[in-house]
Amino acid sequence: MTHTSNIDSATELRRLSRKLKSLRESRDWTLDELAERTGLSKPYLSRLEAGERQPSIAALLSIAQTYSVTVAALFQEEQQAPQVVVRQGQRPLKTGNGLFHTSLSERGGEFNLRPIRVIVPVDRAGGDLYQHDGEEWLYVLSGHLRLILGNEQHLLSEGDAAHFDARTPHRLVAEGETDAELLLVATVAPRPLLGSYL
């Protein structure tokens, strides 16, 4: 009985910590600002958001009043509708394997297709070939791209496309004096795709 109670308490504490952080970030408040509004210390609030401390009733009342929600709402999981549209500039460029890339979908865990915008720098270092499960389709938006695919090499220009089995060792190389930008759609789990692709 005690064991089950401890599990339930830990679950509630994690749920509360996630909700507290979400509420603060949705308002663009820093911990310092929240501390000033609630009258609670910054270290105390930080530990609550990290799930490292159980709050007092007084603290919960103060936090709920600050966010204009009920105490019960602090323990409720947020049900967010899946995002269908990704706006320009909404997803920042990341770097990996000498490339710049950004996901063009917020639905990564739901669907098999992974659309990605990729910029291949003209001075990309290294020469490693990558391979992973699934398939890839790419479309060159600008620049010139050399697609190394196994023992073959293909030169692609703006408007050209390629579709291949991603288990074949491959690499993207920008040709000429400018970066190559492309739209890439892959069918593969996100981590291998962003960690060992192209």
Rank of each mutant, 00 (worst) to 15 (best):
Q153S: 13
A72T: 14
E49I: 00
A10E: 15
G176R: 01
R171H: 09
G109W: 12
G51R: 00
Q131P: 00
E136R: 06
Y44K: 02
V122I: 10
P115W: 09
A162H: 04
G150H: 06
W137N: 02
G108L: 15
H132P: 04
R146S: 07
L99K: 06
L40Q: 02
A81Y: 11
G176N: 04
P192K: 09
T187Q: 13
R114C: 03
R191C: 08
E49V: 02
S68G: 12
D28M: 13
E177G: 06
Y139P: 01
I57P: 00
L45H: 03
P121Q: 06
H144Y: 10
D32F: 02
I119L: 07
R117G: 11
V140M: 04
D8F: 10
V173T: 11
E177S: 09
T2K: 11
R107L: 14
L16R: 00
K19W: 05
L193T: 06
G98R: 03
L145T: 01
K19R: 15
P192R: 06
Q90K: 09
Y139W: 15
V122R: 09
P190D: 15
S46V: 02
K94S: 13
R91I: 15
A186F: 03
L198I: 11
D128W: 08
S41K: 04
W29H: 09
S196L: 10
P121I: 07
G109H: 11
V118S: 00
S41M: 08
A35D: 09
A174I: 01
I116K: 04
P169E: 04
S103W: 14
E77R: 08
S22A: 12
S196G: 14
I63C: 10
G109R: 12
E12W: 07
R18W: 01
L145W: 07
R53H: 08
Y44E: 05
S5V: 14
S56W: 05
V188C: 15
I63P: 00
G126H: 08
A64E: 09
Y139L: 11
A125Q: 13
Q65M: 08
V173G: 01
L74E: 07
L155P: 02
G159S: 04
P82D: 10
R47Y: 13
L20M: 08
S157N: 13
A186R: 03
L60N: 01
Y67T: 02
F100T: 07
D179H: 10
E177N: 09
G108F: 14
D179G: 04
P82K: 08
T66W: 08
A58D: 15
D123G: 05
G176S: 04
A72H: 14
